[in-house]
Design a protein around this nucleic acid. Sequence first.
RNA 1: GGAAGUUUAGCUCAGCUGGUUCAGAGCAUCUGCCUUACAAGCAGAGGGUCGGGGGUUCGAAUCCCUCAACUUCCA
Length: 877
Amino acid sequence: MSIASKYDPAQAEAKWYAYWMEHKLFSSKIDPSKEPYTIVIPPPNVTGVLHMGHMLNNTIQDVLIRRARMLGKNACWVPGTDHASIATEAKVVNMLKEMGIDKKSLTREEFLKYAWEWKEKYGGIILEQLKKLGASCDWDRTAFTMDPALSNSVITVFVDLYKKGKIYRGIRMVNWDPKGQTALSDDEVIMKEIASKLYYIQYKIEGTKDQFLTIATTRPETIMADVAICVNPNDPRFTHLKGKKALIPLINRAIPIIEDEYVDMEFGTGCLKVTPAHDINDYELGLKHKLEVIDILNDNGTLNEKAQILVGEDRFIARKKIGKLLDEAGQLEKIEDYKSNVGHSERTDAVIEPKLSLQWFLNMEEITKPALKSVMEDTIQLHPSKFKNMYRAWMENVRDWCISRQLWWGHRIPAFYLPNGEFVVAKTAEEALKLANEQFRSNYTLTDLTQDEDVLDTWFSAWLWPISVFDTDVFATGKPNEELKYYYPTNDLVTAPEILFFWVARMIIAGYEYLGEKPFKNVYLTGIVRDKLGRKMSKSLGNSPDPLELIAQYGADGVRTGMLFSSPAGNDLPYDDKLVEQGRNFANKIWNAFRLVKGWEIDPSLDGSSNEASIAWFENRFNEGLTEINEHFEKFRISDALMATYKLVWDDFCSWYLEMIKPAYQHPIDQQTYDKTIEIFEGILKILHPFMPFISEELWHQIKERSVEESLILATWPKAENFDPKIIEEAKQVFEVVSQVRNLRASKGMSPKEALDLSINAKNPELYTQFATVLSKLANLSSLNFADKVDNSMSFVVKADECFIPMGDSVNIEEEKANIQKDLEYTRGFLNSVLKKLSNERFVAGAPANVIEMERKKQADAEAKIKALEESLAKLG
RNA sequence: GGAAGUUUAGCUCAGCUGGUUCAGAGCAUCUGCCUUACAAGCAGAGGGUCGGGGGUUCGAAUCCCUCAACUUCCA
């Protein structure tokens, strides 16, 4: 026998992944005779490389899909990638910069050519990496959010929603990213607490020589955009200023002093500068008081000529300079340290500038309603359910969705502007022209039309994903094709809570809007993979291991199980190499269990009846374990399902069962036991497969030669048969005796090689005789007898059975007595607590019958044990 | 500032509707073993007044109140 004692994953992984691919075993075709089970992958960004989060997320998906496949379902896992507008455009812009090309010097078409080249080159990397993990996606279905057909459906949906009046164009205060030079949705803004300064600035009251009012602001560079000063009408400090005007320092522009209860009298000085162009609250206030809007910032965050001073300076430089200017002018009262929450771009990390601009919006008011309802009523279940609260909070307070982005990479907005200042929305320029000429009774030609320069928010395509991977025409036709009818709604979605609103909620919205049906039944929300210090793993911190390196080192199976050992749904995963090491060790354990079995020689003439009890025990235990595992899966407790599998395989199968039936060294095994053991091993491999697809498939084929159709990936998940708890209970008792003998040896410093005689004063000797050979083997006994008393022996009690091991003169009677005494005292104390309960009338009257029954049994057990212990004590004299 | 969640062994977490799965699991730790499947292993062992305080109850890790700490979401 020349199987290596250590499992080498690399070879098996390459071999079996290629095998599965070659024979198209991940492929799913419509089959009405089978129940579909569908997962759509959360499409990773084309800019992405595999990180630890992907590993966790995709391992979970693969576990689910592989188990579903074995359950006989038509398992379909659709892979793909997302075009990621901002991130990809930023990557391409950087690449061009390195090539010495400025994006501004390119036309849109030229830029897109570079972008597509970039995408073709790098966009598929992450999917290749997923294969290393073992992901059993139907790769023939690989989709990309900017594929022509998918793009077409995005545009169709835009036009449709526009026609329904749900999409509109409007001036709004948006989150402007001056670095990315685009508007962002609220969700793409990350609030961070920043140490800043509060500037106290004095504004002269118009028409006076020395009267001032003081405002406090964190943004002194915006004073040139002020259009009013606002005070609270209830504030007695400012009643004398009513109707007057103030002069903006440095530029001396007069602005009215207005009153509004909105102003917090406690904060700052009680005077608020109103700058509608650069603050969302001021903007609202401006609307209310019909104030003008002065925008002093350029799109790139520099000051424009409306600022009059510091024109061309960056907003942050201007802030510093204006502080100095105000100080020199004697109008800076003081500067205080201040902590404020400042929005940052999720993508570029630039400080967000509230900016008024013309953008496209989707009205969310009506369209979100069915989506909220379905989650609240558990039509769609979130796992863990605690996310329902968050979901509701968002959906009930959702604001209109800003869907335009000032970028080139993405789906260009199908709005066409006309020379008359109007615009039309249509799928193509030709249609737009027709529409325009009808609507405005004109004779425009194509050259008169100018298409909107902007693209749509990436999520505006991703929200169609569970539909458009199957059917890109349904948005136009309203008639689902066969694929969509069969695979939709999908079953489970596995993703991160971070994108619950970005993506999950919007997919649900789109599902109901276009198909009147949920996009998936379950949403499994994973946690974030963190390092030992609790920090999120990130490239910039350099605290993340390289996933491919990990796979190379520990094997894909080891990494997969390692990722799942400690990651209940919704919980963060504190990553530690120890986890994947444990996974690797587990694979090795299975490998060696196989080596053992494979190494046996079979002697058909041998009688295997002494192993029957062991086999019967394991079969019952297997079904018990399997029942438990199935329950965990059904509740999406993947970690627990893995742990139950781990213990069943390692503890019950390897540590107990194999040791029980293992023939002595270089002795053959009987045919019956061997066959049963192989059968059991096959069951083990089946339940391991979703977690550890590679090693399980490898051993499956090493057991015997099998055809493609007989591959483990296609095998049937074992049926959980009924089991007899009594058999499991009895075996436990025998195991306990084994443990006690071993324990006794260890505590006396005896070698395990030293065989011992064991006598049991058993209520039911049959229980032990059926496992007689097992007991002898595992506890290393020279004999097993039944007797109610053995002189000069050490003893212990299991349940109510006394066990004796004669030790001749070496027995320390006093020590033995002390041990028994200790046990006795504990049991008596326990009995007392039980009796106390049972003698309490209110307990007996109030507790349910089964609880009382239980207490009575406790009493009986304790009494029996006490009796046995007392007898032991008495025998010692 | 508003809301939710978390707090159980050194670490990561189970413990469903109050009563034998009630104090658990894995890892880590300690002790003894290179016992021919596996030292990536085997056999044993020790570790927690279930965040603090109060209450309800015959009975609380579990229900209620309160305080504290941490996390997340929203502003």
